[in-house]
């Protein structure tokens, strides 16, 4: 097997009496779509936030492409190619769709202490913005302020921003949350199209989406990974079935 792109090694994080990550370990291989599932409160968003660097583990280490991420800031991780989307849609509402994507691209083009040239007339941004718009299917809405987009479109924009830079690992935190069936199909298509080009760590509640998209699945219960395997293995795992007792798998 290749060297994993992401290795979470015995990570523990407590919030007061609650242990949100308990000696948690798993790996993500280059090129795979790896899903994290688990009941509510199993610590899925907590581990995403530790990967992106918004919170730091109490103990344990996280390696990205062989580099220990301890002490590396959120923006520095992002520039290393660790991009994320947010559970609650997080776009720049008063900026246009194109401006949203341009900012995401700009982040990966060195510093932005450039005070003179108009960003929207910058050829180094323009083509890439076009591509990013096409990728998420929002060409028609390019000049629209993001606040005017539908919920599904905002989601697509959110994911599109996470994809816009030189992303190597994409952390998707419940991308389908609050979407109707139509939107789910659109976004699934987008994610499936990325398969093989990009490594994805996906947190999601929609089991149909998970089992149709993921190469491997890790199951979290009370902050601990109780099983990792292919969708078929996970379905057959008695421990997982016990954890999900009463929930459809």
């Amino acid at each position: 097997m290749d060297e994993p792109l992401l290795r979470v090694d015995s990570v523990t994080k407590r919030f007061g009496a609650v242990t949100a990550s308990r000696n948690l370990s798993f790996t993500v291989q280059p090129g795979e779509i790896h899903a994290l599932i688990g009941p509510n409160g199993s610590g899925k968003t907590t581990i995403i936030n530790q990967l992106s660097g918004e919170i730091n583990p109490d103990s344990g280490n996280i390696y990205f492409a062989g580099i220990n991420l301890a002490g590396i800031s959120v923006p520095a991780r992002a520039r290393m190619g660790l991009a994320r989307s947010f559970q609650i849609t997080s776009v720049f509402e008063r900026l246009s769709v194109a401006q949203n994507l341009a900012l995401a691209i700009q982040a990966h083009q060195g510093h932005s202490f450039r005070f003179w040239r108009r960003a929207h007339a910058d050829p180094a941004l323009g083509d890439l913005v076009e591509q990013a718009l096409a990728r998420v299917g929002l060409e028609e809405r390019a000049e629209e302020p993001a606040i005017n987009l539908s919920h599904g479109e905002k989601r697509q924009l959110d994911v599109g921003m996470a994809l816009a830079g030189t992303t190597r690992l994409l952390l998707l935190d419940e991308p389908m949350a609050g979407m109707g069936p139509g939107g789910t199909v659109e976004l699934s298509k987008l994610i499936r199209g990325l398969k093989g080009k990009l490594t994805i760590l996906l947190v999601e509640h929609d089991m149909d989406v998970i089992f149709s998209l993921a190469d491997r699945i890790s199951v979290l219960v009370y902050g601990e990974a109780i099983a990792t395997g292919t969708p078929r293995e996970i379905r057959a795992n008695p421990q997982v079935q016990r954890a999900y007792l009463g929930e459809r798998l």
Binding site: A78, F86, V91, R94, L95
Partner: peptide
């Protein structure tokens, strides 16, 4: 508009 998002995009805010 959104400081948290800017950090996540890679900007040292």
């Amino acid at each position: 508009e959104n400081e948290r998002r800017m950090l996540a995009l890679g900007f040292p805010v």
